[in-house]
């Protein structure tokens, strides 16, 4: 699937290009209001394109209404028809595409069995749990044998525990699906686990794309850096030395010219007095706040650069950290990575 989507609204313009191979899962990742769902609805034909095109299997489908596109869509709150049983919900698509009632029900029953809900075929949607409803929604979308599968925040409505389980099941179903898949999410974990490739959308444009590991290692915007949990700065490199504002950092990579520098919060160490040794990678910061972060404490630092530092609770107690306090921070050069901006 190749698409160039342009949707113009009074206060917002979406303009992105998407290229998804059959069998590939691409996640559109971005903050709320970035235009991810708009892009998905445009692909589905639920809103018209202002400009651009959608080509699927060599056919331009953007001129067709939603019901004539070879797509399947899973909505954020599933939108299972409340007056139909799970089986009839799944059989709905094949029925609309001219399959006989018996045949459609057979297809639906087989799909429900695949998602492990054979025993709930006659249940109405309101009798299903969130995770079950999600699986019925996936089965319903797959029942029409779409060439393009669209998923809008497929796990957002689930509680943390169910989410874990449903996520791995969804991953299995997506792996078995032969068509192209576009998944919208604002959860980096969902994106990393489910997608072969991430496309990060901010303010209606693509700001970064790549395989999950690449995006996680080399974020290019503050939003992505926050998602993947890295401190990110723009600087100018001269060999191993990178200048970020007034701060001089030593990086593990040799670069020249404008670069991004990133290091994990766990690579930052804090001291009450200036540490000995190299003057690089050391700066004086002010503590802006301290919060729990997993097993560690995350310290928010301001100063020449804004940074997060993850340290152990014991270290917090030992250093007697309080907001507003001046402190020395250092980061290991081996964990500071520079890459072209």
């Amino acid at each position: 699937m190749k698409a160039h989507l342009v949707v113009t609204r009074p206060a917002f313009t979406l303009d992105i290009e998407l290229d998804v191979a059959p069998g590939e899962v691409v996640a559109l990742l971005g903050p709320n209001g970035a235009g991810k769902t708009t892009a998905l609805r445009a692909l589905a034909g639920l809103i018209p394109l202002t400009r651009g095109e959608i080509v699927l299997d060599g056919q331009a489908i953007h001129t067709r209404p939603a019901e004539q596109r070879p797509i399947g869509m899973v909505f954020q709150d599933y939108l299972l028809f409340p007056h139909l049983s799970a089986l009839d919900n799944v059989a709905f698509g094949p029925r609309c595409r001219g399959v006989s009632k018996t045949e459609a029900r057979r297809t639906a029953a087989a799909l429900l069995e695949q998602v492990g809900l054979a025993g709930h075929a006659s249940s109405r949607p309101r009798r299903l749990s969130g995770g079950q409803a999600q699986r019925v929604a996936v089965a319903r979308a797959l029942a029409v044998r779409p060439a393009l599968l669209l998923l809008d925040e497929p796990l957002a409505a689930l509680d943390a525990h169910t989410r874990l389980e449903v996520r791995s099941q969804l991953r299995r179903h997506l792996a078995g699906f032969e068509g192209a898949t576009v998944l919208v999410t604002h959860d980096p974990l969902d994106a990393m686990v489910l997608a072969d490739r991430l496309v990060v959308v901010e303010n209606g444009s693509v700001v970064q794309q790549g395989v999950p590991a690449e995006v996680a290692r080399r974020p290019r915007t503050d939003y992505v850096a926050r998602l993947v949990g890295l401190n990110l700065y723009r600087g100018v490199a001269d060999g191993h030395r990178v200048t970020v504002g007034d701060l001089l950092l030593s990086a593990a990579d040799t670069m020249e010219g404008p670069v991004f520098v990133a290091f994990p919060p766990a690579a930052v160490a804090l001291y009450r007095t200036r540490p000995d040794g190299s003057p690089r990678n050391v700066w004086q910061a002010r503590i802006d706040g301290v919060e729990r972060h997993g097993d560690n404490m995350r310290v928010h630092l301001t100063g020449p650069v804004t940074a997060f530092a993850d340290i152990t609770p014991a270290a917090v107690a030992e250093l007697d950290l309080t907001p507003g306090q001046e402190i020395w921070a250092s980061v290991k050069a081996t964990e500071t990575h520079a890459y072209p901006a």
Partner: peptide, 22 residues
Amino acid sequence: DRRFEEAAATLGASRMTVFRRV
């Protein structure tokens, strides 16, 4: 909720089918 009608459309239902069945 009109989104149910949208869901039906993505499943291939014509306007008449959407009206009748959803």
